[in-house]
Nucleic acid binder design. Structure first.
Lengths: 334, 334
DNA sequence: TTGCTTACACGAAACGTTTCGTATAACAGC
DNA sequence: GCTGTTATACGAAACGTTTCGTGTAAGCAA
């Protein structure tokens, strides 16, 4: 493969001059620039990224670590990050943790070996133990997306989750529902807890008591939400509405209701947080509280570049985005 | 950041010895190995991938280039590739072309700059012009997935698309349908043409004439399939069934039918190639011809590693996978 | 002409690895 | 005790860049 040495020889200049001409990093005459550029084109020179990394002490690689790329929510994030990186001449390396902590560490080590310039992490846990373990593996500018992690002192870009929980619950309460079930997240991730808090706050504001039996665990997983919905609806005094704290859990809920031959929204209303790309061909088209995913991803990657390029310290700022209620056909007025 | 020099100093050995101990690349006494490993742990040494790349002339990076990561079909591929890579100590760099040729070239240049060890490409075009342009940018082992490209002499892992087209059409014909519409792909991608050929062959085998008016262009895009379905169903003599050559186009078809207040399968039966992860919460659950996506992705990445690790030449073999009919509720017997 | 500045081109060092040829010590054979 | 062999540790070179200090010719003022 052609090196800059070949370019220099071909253009009849020194290596350092060729480098300066290519990168405009030092004054070079127009004439020489033209010769060098011609040489680059002629021999098809593409700089060796590893050599550049080595010399400059930093690669043009951005790591994006997320729970699962097949979840459309995260795929949308990936697409945005990837585009912005490409434009900036960086390469995005996307990795799914599959919620596996060993795997997460393995990925971080690999990112470290690659000397990535920065990291965007969509965390799977928020607790300090986990944060401490992660902290030791991170040595580059980092932005946390969707949630934060205790003990990881980085910028955060997230949804107003309490607000999202309230928005969904307010809507159901406004429709006259008084027994609203909720599929919760996992204990150790704050996103779910915040959304649940919104659910509780909305009840308090409406003066409606909450029934703890209506809070079923979903762990952000489709299968878990499915199983517990089955149990919930078979128990005495089932709810008239179900609020799924994430889109994956809503799928589980819908599947369970379908198996029970309960129709939505006639028998039970359903709402969730996070929109679906293909909402309109779903059965029924779901009413959701949507997050501005693309805008959030864009903000995260831009914040990251800000820190990388200007070598600025993380402000540890938390940027919260406002959720939006999208009314479709999965909730009915009682 | 700690270097191998620090490891060597800490262990009281030479750099070359430390390297040999870490990589087991030369005989080193047990005693020294122990000392070096302790040093590695103590100072948290992680090898500098760029330096390794530079020295060894190859990176531990695999490029995966696909049309669009937010398409669940491709996301599933990405997940498999990513996992296999991670296990092998490689890093996968996933990039979406968005069917944009300039962008595809830009991505390839970046892959080249990174000196990726290998490439998996899910092509967006099959024609020779495109192949020729791509060929100049590729200098590493490559495997083509889902489709091939004229003039790109690499191994191919794909579905038996003609068979898939036949399978879907046979099924509809067997249900008594005689006017079966089909949303075609793009002219310059062979996948669509093969599937269409299966459609034609099935008709011939059944002795059913095909009506060219029932072949509408879909370009593999949801929006295009949507618009043309609208026109198709409003025209005189509409079909009793629609065969979408891809899952995205089926979404467009379903949306269009929904807008026209036509129900599936009562008014019109619908089938497509490629399954949906969330098929059972769709309206209606679609009957599809599924490809063994995970198995195909696995085969592709393993074939790629075979070529990378054994430095074997591409056999230019075409591995075809057998499609499977999954009957759900979107097709009815006439 | 001389001296000073400017503009540009050059050479060499350094980034962190791996690898290859060489050095040294231990040991066996005679 | 000498030579030959084996086992293991070492030093130096090389991978392809960028960068910094130096060199040189041209331009300008006096």
């Amino acid at each position: 493969m052609a090196t800059i040495k070949d370019v220099a020889k071909h253009a009849g200049v020194a290596i350092s001059t060729a480098s300066a001409a290519i990168n405009r990093s030092a004054p070079v005459s127009e004439e020489v620039i033209a010769k060098v550029e011609a040489a680059v084109r002629d021999i098809g020179y593409v700089p060796h990224a590893a050599a550049q990394s080595l010399r400059m002490g930093q690669s043009r690689l951005i790591g994006l670590i997320l729970p699962d790329i097949t979840n459309p929510h995260f795929a949308n994030v990936a697409r945005v990050v990837e585009s912005v990186c490409l434009e900036a001449g960086y390469m995005a390396a996307v990795y799914s943790t599959n919620e596996d902590f060993d795997r997460e560490r393995q990925i971080l080590r690999m990112m470290r070996a690659q000397r990535v310039a920065g990291l965007i992490i969509i965390p799977t846990r928020s607790d300090a133990t986990h944060g401490a373990r992660l902290a030791g593996e991170i040595h580059v500018p980092t932005v946390l997306l969707d949630s934060y992690v205790d003990g990881l002192p980085y910028d955060v870009v997230k949804l107003d989750n309490v607000g999202a929980g309230r928005l969904a619950t307010d809507y159901l309460l406004g429709l006259g529902h008084r027994r609203i079930a909720v599929t919760t997240g996992r204990d150790n991730i704050i996103t779910g807890e915040d959304r649940l808090q919104g659910y509780l706050e909305a009840h308090a504001a409406f003066g409606v008591p909450v029934d703890p039996n209506l809070q079923i665990t979903g762990k952000f997983l489709q299968a878990v939400a499915h199983d517990n919905t089955l149990a919930l609806m078979r128990a005495p005094a089932p709810p008239t509405a179900i609020f799924a704290l994430s889109n994956m859990m809503m799928l589980g809920v819908l599947n369970a209701l379908r198996e029970l031959k309960l129709s939505v929204p006639e028998d039970v209303s359903v709402i969730c947080i996070d929109d679906f790309d293909y909402a309109n061909i779903m059965n029924p088209p779901p009413t959701v509280v949507a997050a501005p995913v693309a805008k959030m991803a864009q903000t995260a990657i831009e914040q990251l570049f800000e820190e990388i390029l200007n070598k600025s310290q993380p402000t540890m700022a938390v940027r919260e985005f406002v959720p939006e209620l999208i009314i479709r056909e999965s909730c009915r007025r009682l």
